[in-house]
Design a binder for these strands. Sequence first.
DNA 1: CACCATTTGTTGAACATTCATTCAATATGG
DNA 2: CCATATTGAATGAATGTTCAACAAATGGTG
Lengths: 227, 227
Amino acid sequence: MLETVTPMKTEASDALSETAQKGDAEKRGRKASKEVRRLQLIEATIDSLAKRGYAETTMADVADGAGLSRGIVNFHFESKEKLLIATLQHMYDEYSAHWRTALQKAGDDPARQLQYLVWADFDRSICNKRKLAAWLAFWGEAKSRPTYQALSSSRDAYYQQVFIDLCATLKESGGYSYEPQVIALALSAMLEGLWLRLMMGTEDTTRETALQAANAFLAAAFPKHYG
Amino acid sequence: MLETVTPMKTEASDALSETAQKGDAEKRGRKASKEVRRLQLIEATIDSLAKRGYAETTMADVADGAGLSRGIVNFHFESKEKLLIATLQHMYDEYSAHWRTALQKAGDDPARQLQYLVWADFDRSICNKRKLAAWLAFWGEAKSRPTYQALSSSRDAYYQQVFIDLCATLKESGGYSYEPQVIALALSAMLEGLWLRLMMGTEDTTRETALQAANAFLAAAFPKHYG
DNA sequence: CACCATTTGTTGAACATTCATTCAATATGG
DNA sequence: CCATATTGAATGAATGTTCAACAAATGGTG
């Protein structure tokens, strides 16, 4: 049921596998390329955000999580704020690339494209406890931090426009009566709301039930296409 | 279009109007009843959460916002954590009372009850920038703080059950084909997702457009009742 | 009513802790 | 040997909490 839309792996998990991890204490102090270290620290930041939340995430915790020393983060990122921005940017890029790939794989049929976009949202590589928790941590701080705002809603204006265009196309071919913008807003809001439930760890919501709910919406809104 | 379902006012805003505010510097040092002070400090906490976010909310900022001295919060709440829990509890109680009142005012017709619940979610007294921002601030920390978890999803298990029951009733009378739990999850997730959009301050989403989207969902899912 | 004692509320400075940042010393790889 | 990466202790700023002193209300008593 939950087919993987794209086999994308996070580059960082690859990077981690060739560098120091908790077990390899003897590798501490080894030099690694700048990009590898940065990814390693970004992954450790996501870990910390997921485990402790935004407010409790400290530089020391990130460094410990990466198995490196205290001063290292400032060397690679200058400041805590820049580390967090880089982390957010990393997650944004990953999400962005993921749905674009999914859209491409769907081919030319608009109904299929919309279905693939919905599936992409619940793909394991994107939609897992660790990353959802990190997203939520950023969302909580986004409104009061101008720097975060542009990046913090993973679904940006362009993504929204794609949804609107797809809804408009389906409306024509199916003879539905609603405004494309309105139904697109309802749909994308529901996807975010389902994410929110998954993040909060409410018992009654799992990736499977969330996907069911999303499909129920599609069937209700576009009965000719998903009936 | 946006009719006020309930004329409820926050007790705290009443309380504030009879106690010291920024202008009345001469009233500083005056004693006030315990309950009034607590509400005053809780309101100042919501202000701070909305303005600065969770991580940047400090005891000093709360005290300044209330026009009182630094040590006062510990006197009334013992610790910062207890102040935040009391604030969350206050918001939870307010939300809870609000939707229950709305449900009561709807009368016996299930379609009307569901419509009133949806309206209640976008009522100004609940759904305004200040309070939404405070909710989001708590959500961001909820997963990593067990104490927050029970209170942080304003829509609790009972609320969800009411939705499911209403969907089940509508299904029978309208001859729809989906599972009530699934469509109820889709609906409540969409409401939360719309809140999220409003919180984030995305330009294309206002209280009016959010309500339109919610109504579009109702019309799509229950055409016999809201067509 | 006036007076004083007691309780209760409030203040702001002092304290202890946590944490981001800096940097001189050291290690590593080329 | 040089450039670069890494370490970890030192530093200073921010902040939650404590508390002794003070002020205001309360209530009892003559």
